[in-house]
Design a protein around this nucleic acid. Structure first.
Length: 912
RNA sequence: GGGAGCAUAGCUCAGCCGGUUAGAGCGCUUGCCUUACAAGCAAGAGGUCACAGGUUCGAGUCCUGUUGUUCCCACCA
């Protein structure tokens, strides 16, 4: 058994912290409002201070960090503003639960003390979140960190409120809102999730007053009968026309209500008769408004019945049972059928919300939505991917007024005061006296604002708005907003309309929408399923780079990401590969002089090839970066790195160096095996320089083309990878030169280094090597056995300089050129497009050889047939582009020549 | 009820403006402890691109429909 060589493996985890500290202390994260550079700004969607960050935050933040690091390297004044959100209801619930552990009720300690406790919570968890963000390597400007309830943001919130109030876009009104009996507050429409639930549709009789006639009504909520204000039928419904205007008696109560007609009633649902309960249904409320019906509240804030006679004081679902029971006993219950319907639940706690009439503050949305619709329709704000703009527009076009008051303490208290004279005063600061009556007895509104009311201002409140600060002038509007598709309504839409209203500008140009992180089975990660993955655990186990890589590699904008442990192992392997490739480069190049401005002229083929490939990549990925296709860009960079650079370029270069060493006694021989990148259980320090290499100090180092290209290409690849995996790239970068990779320039495309003909030549050599290796495998030649090769080719001069490379790569003992086809028996023949290669073996199985050839001939002939068919099609010749036709003709030529060569080598070939 | 997405190898997914024999990672098979890397290397197997039409010289790619699936929105009591 061989031993695992762990010492060769990078343990990046232990140095990430130091690297982050180094970046922070160097001031690389900080942006300046005086800078001459063009700004590029991203603001972090502020995480809630309710607890730890989850893997979705990690994805969100990684994407933002990728773009900000990329832009920073591209020469922008890059600014990434971090911060946290006070998360009103969620935090209040957490703190309340915390207090409950000490048997304390928030009412016992009062508003001020409760807020003190919550600020303590904020300081604790805000700090934890900051640490988590730092562990991920996110390059935020911490000197600009904000909190939605800090002084500046609070000022912005008050300003926003007052301005809208003055324009009559904020008003106080009484109507049904969604009430959460657990959070004990109102919530806005979008804070209600509708969930499918199993329920019952009960049908029972309402007798008409002074009559034996009755009307049957269906409802899923029979306990609300005590709040009934009418029975409603559709005005055109012939069945019930005679009953309109009559009085009906509420069962169990005996209270008399009118039968009315309203177009909102759907005749084909249930019995076609609707019981109208204005206080506890949005639709019924509207009907009630139209018919001037009374609102009888029958559920209190805890969801307990009230005004229900003997049924008062019951929890709402208990009350339902009791009422159904009584209905049945009194013989009015007609039937009970199970149905699946949708129930509104509180998005914070999952409790079934209760529509309930109450007095709240609202934002009048229609006037604000109009410009927000326009700015997206006109393309001034672009969603990526574009389909999300449809979702956004659809929502705004059907928008209803936004209920912004919350019956909780943690948040921005509504800047409204009530005088005993009845006057309502909204002001930026507490008024001394009532402007109406001069009274001093003013009481501030108890309610606070929806948490999203403050995050709506985030892109400009963080820069000091409403003040015209230097930051605001330099950095607002921001460039790109990056967030998950789950908060387009909550956040993105509200930022857009509030910014247009307050600043007159679109807050950003692009909205990059990403998906959610799901588990390996595609399920949403949640506490109840227990399938959540803690990013910190992953970082501790695999390092931040691995996590970042796993989250981003292969993703496409807007699509959800599946995440699993397997995936992260692949990431770790990749990071490790980079580390080892760097060790390799270091080992082979350390005794050469590496020149910064090396003139890349008279290049050897493999050097020219890799430089050309690299520049092709730079060119190709540029668009991917600009289009936010980071997953695709990363994949392209990785495959160039792994396949072209590691598998071919480094291998070929190694052969070159070793060959040099054998023949010329070149400095390769002085390579030390214990160089700095070779971890030996301990991790090298961040400082540059190596302790050993006495020999190299005494040597006069010579430049070498391959060594120079090797280091150059490695560094370019590192720079391209840096936005994705910042730690390992920084670590390696510093070993190969001065300064930090973070502030180096992103690789620029250099057309002069493109060389397609060299790429083609190199491809040919690679193909030869691959073919011989494959044949060796086919023939079961043991890997330690060297073979003899004969090559027949038209242009021997081309291959000659690479004989050594081919020889080593395919483990050949000797390679000789021949002029004519060989007739020798003990050679297996490989036919490539340009040459014939004879692989010498001990004994050739002629039958096998034939079979192999025949299979190949069949496949090629098939292709020839298809291609000929295509070419003989006159429509193709007249309609297809010239380039395609030429390509096809060329292909046919090559195929034909190959099949000819093959036929010569094959017995009974004519039968094929 | 309305809207959107997805359907490609055993699994997870790429696949651009339509143009060779449809790609990658993981998994699988075979051989290798090769002086950077076994977290690796080399060589392989594996596909009727959901289905049915259409447009086109040519369709995984564009259009229409069908099926399956996921998500979002909506006051059917």
């Amino acid at each position: 058994m061989w031993k695992k060589k762990f010492e060769k493996i990078l343990d990046i985890r232990s140095i990430e912290k130091d690297i982050y500290k180094f970046w922070e202390e160097s001031g690389f994260f900080r942006a300046s409002s005086d800078s001459e550079k063009r700004p590029f700004v991203v603001v972090l969607p502020p995480p809630n201070i309710t607890g730890n960050l989850h893997i979705g935050h990690a994805l969100d933040q990684t994407l933002q960090d990728i773009i900000i690091r990329y832009k920073r390297m591209k020469g922008f004044e890059a600014l990434f503003v971090p911060g946290t959100d006070h998360a009103s209801i969620a935090t209040e619930a957490k703190v309340t639960a915390d207090l409950a552990k000490e048997n304390i009720n928030k009412w016992d300690i009062g508003r001020d003390e409760f807020l003190n406790r919550t600020w303590e919570w904020k300081h604790k968890y805000g700090g934890i979140i900051v640490n988590q963000i730092k562990k991920l390597g996110i390059s935020c400007d911490w000197s600009r960190e904000r909190f939605t309830m800090d002084e500046g943001c609070s000022e912005a919130v008050i300003e926003f409120f007052v301005r809208l109030y003055e324009k009559k876009l904020i008003y106080r009104g009484t109507r049904t809102i969604n009430w959460c009996p657990k959070c004990l507050t109102s919530v806005s429409d979008i804070e209600v999730n509708s969930e499918e639930a199993q329920g019952y549709l009960y049908q029972f009789r309402y007798f008409l007053k002074d009559s034996n006639n009755f009307l049957c009504v269906s409802t899923t909520r029979p306990e609300t009968i005590f709040g009934d204000a009418a029975l409603a039928v559709h005005p055109e419904d012939e069945r019930y026309k005679p009953f309109i205007g009559k009085q009906a008696l509420i069962p169990l109560s005996g209270r008399s209500i009118p039968v009315i007609s309203d177009k909102a009633v759907k005749p084909d649902y249930g019995t076609g008769i609707l019981k109208v309960t204005p206080a506890h249904s949005h639709e019924d409320f509207e009907i009630g408004q139209r018919h001037n019906l009374a609102c009888v509240v029958i559920l209190d804030e805890h969801g307990v019945t009230t005004n229900c006679g003997i049924y008062s004081g019951l929890e709402r679902f208990e009350a339902r049972k009791a009422v159904v029971d009584s209905l049945e006993k009194s013989g009015v219950l007609v039937k009970t059928e199970p149905i699946v319907h949708r129930l509104g639940t509180c998005y914070r706690c999952g409790t079934v919300v209760e529509p309930r009439v109450s007095t709240q503050w609202f934002v009048s949305m229609k006037p604000l939505a109009a410009p927000a619709i326009e700015v997206v329709e006109s393309g001034n704000i672009k969603f990526v991917p574009q389909r999300f703009s449809k979702i956004y527009l659809n929502w705004l076009k059907n928008i209803k007024d936004w209920c912004i008051s919350r019956q909780i303490w943690w948040g921005h208290r509504i800047p409204a005061w009530y005088c005993s004279c009845g006057k309502e005063i909204v002001a930026r600061s507490e008024p001394d006296v009532c402007p109406c009556c001069g009274g001093k007895n003013l009481a501030q509104e108890d309610d606070t604002l929806d948490t999203w009311f403050s995050s709506a201002l985030w892109p400009f409140s963080v820069f000091g708005w409403p003040h015209d600060t230097e930051d605001y002038k330099k950095f607002f509007p921001i460039d790109t907003l990056i967030t998950g598709h789950d908060i387009i309504f909550f956040w993105v839409a509200r930022m857009i309309f509030s910014s247009l209203e307050l600043t007159g500008k679109a807050p950003f140009k692009h909205v990059l929408v990403h998906g959610l992180v799901r588990d390996s089975l595609g399920r949403k990660m949640s506490k109840s399923l227990g399938n959540g993955i803690d990013p910190l655990e992953i970082i501790d186990k695999y390092g931040a780079d691995s996590l970042r890589y796993a989250l981003v590699s292969g993703i496409t904008p807007g699509n959800d990401v599946k995440f699993s442990e397997e995936k992260i192992e692949g990431s770790r392997n990749f990071i490790n590969k980079i580390w080892n490739a760097a060790r390799c480069v270091e080992m082979y190049t350390k005794n050469y002089k590496i020149i910064e401005n090396f003139e890349y002229k008279n290049l050897k083929l493999h050097n020219s090839w890799i430089l050309s490939r690299l520049n092709g990549l730079i060119d190709e990925t540029k668009k991917n970066f600009e289009d936010f296709e980071f997953g695709i860009a990363l994949q392209k960079i990785c495959s160039l790195f792994w396949e072209d650079f590691c598998d071919w370029y480094l291998e070929i270069s190694k052969i070159e160096f070793k060959f040099l060493a054998e023949t010329n006694n070149d400095s390769y021989k002085t390579i030390q095996s214990d160089s700095f990148l070779k971890g030996s259980g301990t991790v090298p320090e961040l400082e540059i320089g190596d302790s050993e290499s006495n020999c190299s100090k005494n040597l006069k180092l010579q430049p070498n083309q391959t060594a120079n290209v090797m280091v150059y290409v490695l560094k370019q690849i590192l720079a391209m990878l840096h936005p994705f995996i910042p730690f390992v790239t920084e670590k390696i970068w510093q070993h190969f030169g001065e300064g930090s990779i973070m502030v180096s320039s992103f690789p620029e495309f250099d057309r002069n280094l493109l060389n397609f003909s060299d790429e083609k030549f190199m491809q040919r050599i690679i193909f030869i090597i691959k073919s011989v290796r494959a044949r060796r495998n086919d023939l079961n030649i043991p890997s330690n056995k060297k073979v003899n090769l004969l090559i027949k080719t038209e242009d021997r001069a081309f291959l000659e300089p690479y004989l050594q490379t081919i020889k080593t790569a395919v483990r050949a003992s000797e390679i000789n050129f021949i002029e004519h086809d060989s007739n020798e028996e003990n050679f297996s023949v490989i036919t490539t497009d340009f040459e014939k290669i004879y692989v010498q073996i001990d004994s050739l199985n002629r039958a096998e050889e034939n079979q192999r050839n025949i299979a190949e001939i069949c496949s090629i002939k098939n292709q020839i047939k298809n291609t000929e068919k295509l070419i003989s099609n006159s429509e193709f010749i007249t309609k297809a582009p010239k380039a395609v036709i030429e390509k096809t003709q060329n292909k046919l030529k090559i195929l034909k020549s190959r099949v000819e060569k093959l036929l010569k080598e094959t017995d009974q070939a004519e039968q094929v």
